[in-house]
């Protein structure tokens, strides 16, 4: 079955055309001279120029990046702990509740998460701003990190940890020297996932942000409600470019890491 049948070739072509044509159109028309986005009037990069001078967008972008860096880092730490507890922690009081709280946010409608967190922040009298968005983003993205990391923890050979413990490592040393290097690719992809989820989020940020902190999605949403604009097309193109470069780099890096790990394992197998 190594040749593509015509049916599979057609469904793949149509499927990927459907996935990519809308974004390609968006990118092409970000270089349109005309203010009317649907009429092509010649090539121009003027909308990118206007973007650079749009203080409101730049401020919002800066807020968004800061929120994403803080929340994804916190979420990676908490999510890795949670994954470790779920996979290696054995039985403890309230384990079912704990795993329920890890999986529920993955499918929870954002409007509910946003509303409930906002009511909490108001209830305890926390001023809404960057800090509250970070708390909110950390909470839902740590669950994604935990799912990614625990799927890696499940598949790796536990006897490696046990060997380290037998050879005199403390549990913390065994984690740092054995477990962490092995799960590192999953931890990194968890961080990346948390980072993009935070960059992307509109609904939860709208509920939990205050007037002092507007994120880029909030800004884009309020602009887009008024209709299509070439400036937003330019901004979208930049964001698509950043994500594309990031995803391709990340996949190359993890591929290389996987190859290296395999070589090391083979070398170790030969040595014994």
């Amino acid at each position: 079955m190594n040749r593509l049948s015509w049916f599979n070739a057609v469904s793949l072509t149509l499927g990927f055309a459907f996935l990519y044509i809308p974004m390609i159109i968006l990118i092409i028309f970000s270089f349109n001279e005309s203010k009317l986005v649907t009429v092509w009037a010649g090539f121009s990069t003027k909308w990118y120029g206007e973007l650079i001078h749009n203080e409101a967008f730049l401020d919002a972008a800066w807020v968004t990046v800061r929120v994403a860096v803080f929340s994804s880092t916190l979420a990676t730490i908490l999510g890795t702990m949670a994954a470790y507890v779920l996979v290696r922690g054995g039985r403890f009081f309230g384990r079912t509740l704990f795993s329920g709280m890890i999986y529920a946010p993955l499918v929870m409608p954002e409007v509910i998460t946003g509303l409930s967190l906002l009511l909490l922040f108001i209830g305890i009298g926390l001023d809404r701003g960057i800090f509250t968005i970070v708390l909110a983003h950390t909470t839902f993205s740590m669950c994604y990190v935990s799912v990614v990391v625990s799927s890696r923890l499940i598949t790796f050979d536990r006897s490696l940890e046990e060997a380290a413990l037998d050879l005199g490592c403390s549990p913390a040393q065994a984690f740092r020297l054995v477990t962490l290097p092995i799960i590192a690719p999953a931890v990194i992809s968890g961080w990346l996932l948390a980072f993009t989820l935070s960059l992307d989020d509109l609904v939860i940020a709208s509920f939990t942000s205050g007037p002092s902190a507007t994120t880029l999605p909030i800004k884009i949403f309020s602009a887009v409600r008024l209709g299509v604009s070439p400036e937003i097309n330019a901004l979208s193109t930049l964001m698509i470019a950043v994500v594309t470069i990031g995803v391709i780099t990340a996949s190359l890096v993890t591929k290389r890491a996987a190859v290296r790990q395999k070589q090391e394992e083979q070398a170790a197998a030969r040595a014994t």
Partner: peptide
């Protein structure tokens, strides 16, 4: 990777693309 790439791209932007 081609399937995953749109998933990493902003949800808002992908919806916006259809408005045009």
């Amino acid at each position: 990777m081609l399937v995953i790439l749109p998933f990493w791209t902003s949800f808002l932007i992908r919806v916006y693309a259809w408005m045009g």
